[in-house]
Computed example of a mutant assay.
Amino acid sequence: MSSKTRQNENNCEEQSGLKEELNRKIKEQKVVVDELSNLKKNRKVYVQQRNSNIFFLADRGQTLGSCKKELDNMKKELQDI
């Protein structure tokens, strides 16, 4: 088998792995968006600070909007692959 053939197979496997990982993240993000959408208006939402175990009180509407935007970006990235 030539080195180009092996390289193409490795690239296909890497892309497949990336697609699977992205699909998993998209499913997780859909759950987050659904959960935020179904919260009662008076419920509090906390957002975790990056690389930390600290949570901060956040606005539900802003959090939902940013989660939807992130989901759209993930879907767009999946289509580009």
Rank of each mutant, 00 (worst) to 15 (best):
Q15S: 12
Q62P: 05
D59I: 00
L64K: 08
N38S: 06
Q15D: 13
D34S: 12
S66E: 12
E20H: 11
I54N: 13
N11V: 03
S52L: 07
K27Q: 12
K27N: 11
K41Q: 14
K30T: 01
V47H: 04
K19Q: 14
Q15R: 13
V32R: 04
N38T: 06
K27V: 13
D59F: 01
S16E: 15
Q48K: 15
N11A: 12
N10I: 13
K69C: 08
R24A: 10
S16D: 13
Q29F: 01
Q29P: 02
N10A: 14
F55Q: 03
L64T: 01
K68G: 00
K44Q: 11
E70A: 08
E14G: 08
N51Y: 07
R24P: 02
N10T: 10
E20M: 11
V45R: 01
E35R: 15
N51G: 04
D34L: 10
K69R: 14
Q49S: 12
D34W: 08
N11G: 05
K40T: 10
D59K: 01
E13A: 09
K41R: 12
G65F: 07
L22G: 00
K30W: 02
Q62G: 15
K25Y: 03
V45G: 03
N38D: 06
K30L: 06
E20K: 15
K30M: 08
R24I: 04
Q15G: 12
C12R: 14
V45C: 00
Q48M: 15
K19P: 07
L71E: 00
D59L: 03
F55D: 02
E14P: 09
K68F: 00
K68C: 02
G61N: 13
D34R: 05
Q15V: 10
N23R: 04
E20I: 08
Q29L: 03
I26K: 00
